[in-house]
Computed example of a mutant assay.
Amino acid sequence: MNSTFYCLYLLLISVGNLGNLVNSIDKQELEFEKILNSSINPCTNFYKFSCKDWISTAEKPSYEILWNHWHASANIINAKLRRILERNSSEMQSFKKAQSMYFACLNATREDRTDELALLINGMGGWFLPKIHCKVASQYRWPMKVAQITKFANIHPLLKMHVEVDFENGSRHILYVDSGDLVMPAYILEHPESHIQELLQYKEWIIGTAKLMYSTEKISLNLNEDVDDIITFEIQLAKLASADNKRKLVTIAELIEKTNSIDWFHVFKTLFDDAGVELAGNNPIAVSWPFIEKLTELLKITKPTIICKLN
């Protein structure tokens, strides 16, 4: 008996018999037929081939900006978790803690949640969307604000400043300055004409948050226009970030020289002032070029009010 036949023999025994094996294979093929769209050539459009009619039949909830298989699965899992936490009891301490936290969130009033959000935002220096802050926009120093937000909440608007292993020299860590995080997925912001509905929902979300956070008299009369400006600026940022931005190893002194409008020493000191890190002009930094150069040029022609409202 050769090895191939022996393996097949063991497989048949494990399944039960040949008939069961065939039925099992047929069943799997039927499942695949439900998923795959055989009318599409996979070499032409593999996405449509593999997703079949899900794209056209899946119903996206109105409150979701994005919707795909992962979001749908997450909704199902969250629904099951809710049922478990709401309808069950257990003496396990871990379950009791999870259940207690869950009901604490449900029992919180809207005012409780907005108060906590206000404390968080005020701790980062406040949100500049309300009109009361726009008077100081001309003195707004965006690099310092980015450093403060990064340190306070590990959020990276405009720029992402982070310490990682030096990929060129694994024996040391260096500071990286890369493009910042975007709220919306890059592919939406890079192609806004193809994602009008998603961007409209994004706009409604920003406006709704502002109205929830602040009383009417504190909201800018031009709130719609302000949010349009923010989204337009984010679209520009996304296109800058999507370009070929290879990192370049420079020193802090060289970075200051190339972007003479930014006091990088002060920015980095804000990030590391309580970490005991000594900064010097010859400290190496891996910087995403030409993103930084293009960003500084973009910010020169962008109204300060837009920059401060984005942050």
Rank of each mutant, 00 (worst) to 15 (best):
Q99V: 01
P61H: 06
D26H: 13
F95W: 01
L66Y: 15
T114N: 07
K34S: 02
L66K: 08
L81S: 05
T114G: 08
P61W: 04
N88F: 09
N17E: 01
N45V: 02
C51W: 14
E29W: 01
E116V: 06
K52T: 03
K52I: 04
S50Q: 15
N107S: 05
S39H: 15
N107R: 10
I25R: 13
N23M: 14
A79S: 06
L117T: 00
C7R: 14
A104V: 04
S100R: 07
D26N: 12
A72S: 08
L30I: 09
K97I: 03
F32C: 09
V15Q: 07
D115G: 03
D53H: 02
K60L: 10
S24W: 15
H71G: 09
L106K: 15
I77L: 00
K60R: 05
H71V: 07
Q99P: 11
R83M: 14
I77P: 01
W67E: 06
K34H: 09
Q99D: 04
L18I: 08
L66D: 13
D53C: 05
D26V: 11
A98R: 00
F103W: 08
Y6E: 12
D115Y: 10
N78Q: 10
D53Q: 02
E116P: 00
L21Q: 08
P42F: 03
C7I: 14
S100D: 01
K80V: 10
W54P: 05
E64T: 11
Y9D: 04
Y9G: 00
V15W: 08
F32A: 11
N37E: 11
A108F: 14
Y102I: 00
S50D: 13
R82F: 05
S39V: 06
A72P: 04
L18C: 06
E111I: 01
S50Y: 14
S100N: 09
D53W: 05
R113C: 04
L85P: 06
